[in-house]
């Protein structure tokens, strides 16, 4: 199915002029660029959720219950504090809403987010690969056309 689609596309591409091909290539370039950026962003977001899980595990456990900690008021000013609760945390669920959750629920929440992103990342990966393949095909045809054109010119000059 995919092969048939690609073949049909290839025939179509061969009929395009160099100028048109350059335009197509530019469009694909932009798309691939945009999708790769999204991919990066998703990875970053996933990393942030992972950090949250780690923070809950290491920072809000019973083992650190009575340990003093320094709370940043600004990036250069800290005040000492203690953890009010080792069992509950406030989770940002988006659009400015925070929900009080137990640490295990919060961890579960973040794990789900990570998995959801993983799925999105996988889907995106497939799309990016597909686009990159298309881009390669276009580049290849473009090169052939350019070569043919150059040769035509040389022959024209010789004759």
């Amino acid at each position: 199915m995919a092969a048939a689609g690609e073949k049909g596309q290839q025939i179509d591409l061969n009929q395009l002029s160099v100028q048109q091909l350059t335009q197509v290539k530019k469009q694909f370039d932009d798309e691939v660029q945009h999708l790769s950026n999204s991919y990066q962003n998703l990875r970053v977001a996933q990393g942030k959720f992972r950090d949250c899980v780690t923070s809950i595990r290491d920072g809000v456990a019973d083992s650190v219950k009575d340990k003093p900690l320094l709370v940043p008021l600004t990036s250069s000013l800290y005040v000492p504090g203690t953890l009010a609760s080792t069992s509950h945390v406030l989770v940002d669920v988006g659009t400015g809403f925070f929900v009080e959750k137990s640490t295990s629920d919060a961890t579960k929440f973040y794990q789900e987010k990570i998995q959801e992103l993983e799925k999105n990342i996988k889907d995106l990966e497939n799309v990016v690969n597909g686009k990159a393949n298309n881009l390669r095909v276009v580049e290849e045809i473009l090169r052939q056309k350019m070569l043919a054109q150059q040769q035509g010119q040389v022959e024209g000059q010789a004759g």
Partner: peptide
Amino acid sequence: DANIYKLV
């Protein structure tokens, strides 16, 4: 009975 807070 969940506690929900809104960022204002």
